[in-house]
């Protein structure tokens, strides 16, 4: 699976304004609603589901990266976006470090394997230090889009 298979380009947010965990989740879900990736009627339910998932254990996996996610029946295939917070947000990460890079993912409940493939794609690419650094340094959504496209083309190989 490639980023282009599930990342909604119009929802990419290279300047996350939120400064706490819940607000970041709201902002990124809001972006997916504005871009048409999610329906506005589902917005609150999806935000609550993602927050509930975070209570089970943070998706802040360290190194300034978080992958907030949930399953929701309103999507027909995995839908995702990328958020970059230049200053970083306290996401109660495993390593305690602030998070600059968010990969949000909403998957259909009946597509476990697609969800797993999206996570596999994200984490494989995140393994590349250069990919992470470039994303964290992105200033615009176009920068992010370009880096994701390059990753899809396997220009980052680790």
């Amino acid at each position: 699976m490639k980023f282009s298979d599930f990342i909604n380009n119009k929802a990419i947010n290279a300047s996350v304004e939120a400064t706490d965990k819940e607000a970041v989740i709201r902002e990124l879900v809001g972006g997916l609603v504005s871009s048409g990736g999610l329906k506005s009627a589902d917005k609150d339910a999806i935000i609550q589901a993602i927050l509930k998932r975070e209570e089970l254990g943070t998706t802040g996996i360290g190194r300034g990266i978080a992958v907030p996610h949930t399953k929701h029946a309103s999507v027909k295939s995995p839908v995702g976006t990328v958020g970059v917070s230049p200053d970083g947000v306290d996401f109660k990460s495993l390593d305690g470090e602030p998070v600059q890079l968010f990969f949000m993912l909403i998957s259909p409940p009946d597509q476990q394997s697609e969800h797993l493939k999206a996570l596999e794609n994200i984490t494989k690419k995140l393994h590349d230090e250069t990919f992470c650094r470039f994303l964290k340094q992105s200033k615009t959504a176009d920068d992010v889009k370009q880096i994701l496209a390059e990753a899809d083309d396997n220009q980052f190989v680790s």
Partner: peptide
């Protein structure tokens, strides 16, 4: 490493 384990994409 959570990140490493996820890269396996290990299904049922």
């Amino acid at each position: 490493s959570v990140l490493d384990i996820l890269t396996l994409g290990a299904a049922q």
